[in-house]
Design a binder for these strands. Structure first.
Lengths: 334, 334
DNA sequence: CTGAAAGCGCTAACAC
DNA sequence: GTGTTAGCGCTTTCAG
């Protein structure tokens, strides 16, 4: 069997009876090619099944249509929705996303950034503002738009798109205090890795402290956030401190798990016990009991991150050092 | 300000005082370089912050470390988990995933495949077996491993990893029949696009027909599957046919929505009405009522898909035309 | 063990 | 309008 040789631009040119350059220009829809040649080239490309080679294109033109995206996890619906926003915004832009997953691990993040950069991407989207020094240096030296997403509490390398988790925690505390709640518990998972959940907890406590209150029951675990974990930790915290009238969770998955516990145990939510999550997942909106949450704009954040890069490509660096805030909306579910 | 010029291999070589080739070999951990030169080169690379250029590497070596992945959606947790499996398996393989999203649109899928191929990927993972003719031709002509995932009901281009949705639907019908249920309803979303959900429904009906039974109440909608939609459609189908004793849903999101409806309305699940979803999401396991589902191995499918490609790279095409079955397990939740 | 030459497939910059 | 000449940054191949 004959080895299938990749069809190249040269083949197209030969078949069309023109030079490589004319073929190249014709396929890219350049202005300066005669109508008849454009047709000939297009037809030839179609006939022999020309696909093109982005590697050569990018290497030669010194710019690629790749946008690197680095997230801690994809199995987490929150990041999956950010990716969905990114995919949506990238569509029709001629760009292509390349993904890296860090598993909340700094070493993997460093490697992912390095790897990404070696593809000469047009821009890089990374999660969070708190990269360790070596990773940050890599980002600073990269001569492309760097968009840090999901957080604004810190000093961005270039541009950040997200919101302040500290303020989000404060806001939720204030909203809950306004409903008259006084005995607060907290349930969280994976806090060691999850800087942003920690920031929220910090803000939450600070706002309580202003009213001379605090978190009187706390239950955490280093496993991943799941409904089952939320259920279990809620049972635990209520066993220790049954008089709680409100529990703040590090996210909606845990809070929904808490809601399931309450439904099973006949605890009236929110009358007897108020639950507050974070993210505003679809799940929470459909729960048979009403719980509070902060609605974050994951999709919009993804879209804006891409747009920052696309805009920069066209207009130059006028948006340098900017911060795009997408503050969450509190929904008490009442 | 001086324009930051990209650091190239040549720079490393110059600093280390060797030729480009020696530098290249040293950095790739080649055997045939003197210890002292390896050290010199490594040090030089570190000092000047050499990152490398995958574009040039891949173009020159005629192989890339990219694995293309094309899924219909990322906001869907099921595909997000497949991606998580892919990311997990890819880790430490030196490969990198490139993503494309089709939104269940055949044209977008064709473009995504074409785009992917123009990066000379080491392999391609695409969702489903039912690509239209033109896309299929593209895949057939690509001289790389093509893995079609999530389905085995059909004729794979190369290798497929997944399970039979027809059999999955049949199996669920049989399991439900075995519990004595007789009056079946069906609730589904987005069926026009979702070939695989349709295959399940087909299998489900066929198995019922064998017992001279059928689906006596059906409620569908072309929106995306959400808990809210499940809740609403369940209310609708029960309003029309209140005597149903079992509802099969096109997936777990809808089924969980149905469960929420039942909890709110005081319908006893599963005593009075049995609900059956599909996928075995975390959500279902933690619900305050027990519903049936088919546990699919999304993560494993992603992992196996990558492994097929990695294996092929090393061992040649011995796995050509194979089908890897990961049949779902039925959990009646009783 | 090391280096020089050639070229991967394409486009930028000039010619004509 | 079109073609030619040089590369992009790396690896392959082949000499030493």
């Amino acid at each position: 069997m004959v080895v299938k040789k990749r069809v190249t631009l040269k083949d197209v040119a030969t078949v069309a009876g023109v030079s490589k350059m004319t073929a190249s220009r014709a396929l890219r829809g350049a202005s300066d090619v005669s109508k008849s040649n454009v047709d000939k080239v297009r037809q030839a490309a179609k006939d022999i099944g020309y696909i093109g080679n982005h590697l050569a294109l990018s290497l030669s033109s010194q710019r690629s249509n790749l946008i690197g995206v680095i997230v801690p996890s994809v199995a987490n619906i929150v990041f999956a929705e950010v990716l969905a926003g990114i995919a949506e915004a990238i569509e029709n832009s001629g760009m292509q996303p390349v993904f890296g997953v860090t598993d909340y691990d700094a070493t993997k993040e460093y490697d992912a950034v390095r790897n990404m950069l070696s593809w000469n991407p047009a821009g890089l989207i990374v999660t969070g503002l708190d990269q360790p020094e070596d990773t940050r240096r890599l980002l600073l030296n990269a001569d492309i738009p760097i968009v840090q997403i999901m957080d604004t509490d810190g000093d961005p390398v270039d541009v950040c798109v997200g919101f302040s988790h500290v303020r989000a925690g404060e806001a939720m505390a204030e909203a809950l205090l306004a409903t008259g709640r006084k005995r607060f518990g907290y349930v969280g998972c994976g806090l060691v890795q999850d800087t942003r959940a920690n920031k929220r907890l910090g803000g939450f406590k600070r706002a309580l402290a202003k009213r001379k209150l605090g978190v009187i029951g706390i239950e955490t675990s280093e496993e991943h956030s799941t409904l089952a974990a939320g259920r279990r930790l809620t049972a635990q915290v209520l066993k220790k401190i049954p008089e709680l009238d409100c529990i703040y969770y590090s996210n909606d998955d845990l809070a929904a798990g808490g809601a399931f516990h309450c439904i099973s145990e006949g605890i009236a939510v929110p009358e007897q016990l108020m639950l507050a999550g974070f993210n505003g997942l679809d799940l929470v909106k459909s729960l048979p009991v009403r719980i509070a949450t902060s609605l974050t704009s994951r999709r919009d954040i993804g879209i804006e991150a891409v747009n920052v890069i696309l805009r920069r490509q066209r207009e130059g660096s006028d948006t340098k050092n900017r911060c795009f805030d997408h503050p969450p909306h509190i929904d008490l579910g009442l």
